[in-house]
Design a protein around this nucleic acid. Structure first.
Length: 273
DNA sequence: CGGGCCACCTGGCGGC
DNA sequence: TGCCGCCAGGTGGCCC
C-alpha cells in the first residue's frame, strides 16, 4: 500500500484515537510480521501512554510515556482500521485498545506481512538513522537533491527509490514526479542537471502534497483508518497507464512500461528526456 | 562501498 | 473450473 501520502493519511486518522491515550489492551494474533515482535511487546505497551504520533518517511513514530518509541511500518499491504462488526478479519494481526470514553479499538491488518513494529530505546532512532531528507521539508531542495544524485551512477528512477537520497517516495510517486518533471526514469542520476533537479524537487513536493490532500491512493482497498478511500489514483498521469496516450497536451507519445531494478516504470518516451 | 538481484508473503488476475 | 505464471504501494540481505 503505502508511500508517504498513505502513511500520512493513516497517521492523521489514528492520531485523534491514539494521542494522549493509554494502551488499555494490546493483542497479538501471531508472533511476527516481517520480523518477530519485540520481546515483551505487550507488557511494554499496556499501561503506557502514546504522547504523540508522528511520521518519518514511511514510518509511523509513536512517542511513549515510557521513553520508548513505537515504530510501525506498513510494508506493502499493511493498513489500520477501527474495529467493526467483521472483526477479527483474516490477516488482522495486532489489536490496540486505547483508553478514553470511546475506548477505540485499532486493528492492524497486513496480508503480506512485510510490515513490522519495533520498540526503540530512548534516543535510539533505529533504522531511521540513515534516511535522507523528508521530501516536504525545507531540507529537501534542488541543490540538496543534485548533490545526492551526483554520486549515483544508477538511473534516476532507482536513485529516487533509495531512501537514503530522499525518504518517503515509492514506485507510484517516483513515476508520477518524473513524468511531471519531464525526466526519463532511465536517465543516469549523475546526469540530471541542476535545473532538472530544481524542477524534479518541485514536482515531488507538489505530487506528494496533492496526494495527501486526496487522502492517498487506493490501489487495492487502501483506506484511512476511518475507512475513507483515498482518491489520488484517479489523478495518476502515468502509473499503471501502459498503452494510454501521453496526458501532456500535444505530445504524440504513449505510456510504456519497463522494468528497472525489478519494479515497473511507467513513462512517456517522447516527452521524458 | 555501490549496484544488482533475490527473498520475504499472500492474493488477484489473465491465459490456457 | 483449475492450474500456472505473473504481478503488486517495500525493504533487508546477500553477492560480486
Amino acid at each position: 500500500m503505502p508511500e508517504l501520502p498513505e502513511v500520512e493519511t493513516a497517521r492523521r486518522g489514528l492520531a485523534p484515537k491514539m494521542e494522549g491515550r493509554t494502551f488499555n489492551h494490546v493483542q497479538l494474533r501471531r508472533k511476527n510480521l516481517r520480523f518477530p515482535f519485540p520481546k515483551n511487546f505487550i507488557r511494554r505497551l499496556q499501561g503506557v501512554t502514546l504522547d504523540r504520533l508522528s511520521r518519518r518517511a514511511k514510518f509511523l513514530v509513536g512517542e511513549l510515556s515510557s521513553g520508548e518509541t513505537l515504530l510501525m511500518h506498513l510494508g506493502m499491504s499493511g493498513k489500520f482500521s477501527f474495529e467493526d462488526a467483521a472483526s477479527p478479519a483474516k490477516h488482522d494481526h495486532v489489536v490496540f485498545t486505547m483508553s478514553g470514553k470511546d475506548k477505540p479499538v485499532i486493528i492492524y491488518n497486513d496480508p503480506r506481512r512485510f510490515g513490522f513494529m519495533e520498540l526503540l530505546a530512548p534516543g535510539d532512532v533505529g533504522r531511521m538513522a540513515k534516511l535522507g531528507p523528508e521530501p516536504l521539508s525545507n531540507g529537501f531542495s534542488g541543490p540538496v537533491l543534485r548533490t545526492a544524485l551526483a554520486a549515483k551512477k544508477s538511473p534516476i528512477k532507482t536513485a529516487l527509490l533509495d531512501q537514503h537520497i530522499v525518504a518517503g517516495l515509492g514506485n507510484i510517486y517516483v513515476c508520477e514526479a518524473l513524468f511531471l518533471a519531464g525526466i526519463s526514469p532511465l536517465r543516469r542520476a549523475d546526469n540530471v542537471s541542476p535545473d532538472m533537479c530544481e524542477q524534479l524537487c518541485a514536482q515531488i513536493k507538489k505530487t506528494l502534497q496533492l496526494a495527501i490532500k486526496a487522502g492517498g491512493s487506493s490501489l487495492k482497498d487502501f483506506a484511512a483508518a476511518d475507512g475513507a478511500l483515498g482518491y489520488f489514483q484517479h489523478q495518476f498521469q502515468v502509473y499503471d497507464k501502459e498503452g494510454a496516450p501521453c496526458p501532456k497536451p500535444k505530445c504524440p507519445g504513449s505510456i510504456i512500461r519497463t522494468k528497472q531494478s525489478g519494479r515497473s516504470s511507467f513513462y512517456c518516451p517522447d516527452c521524458q528526456i
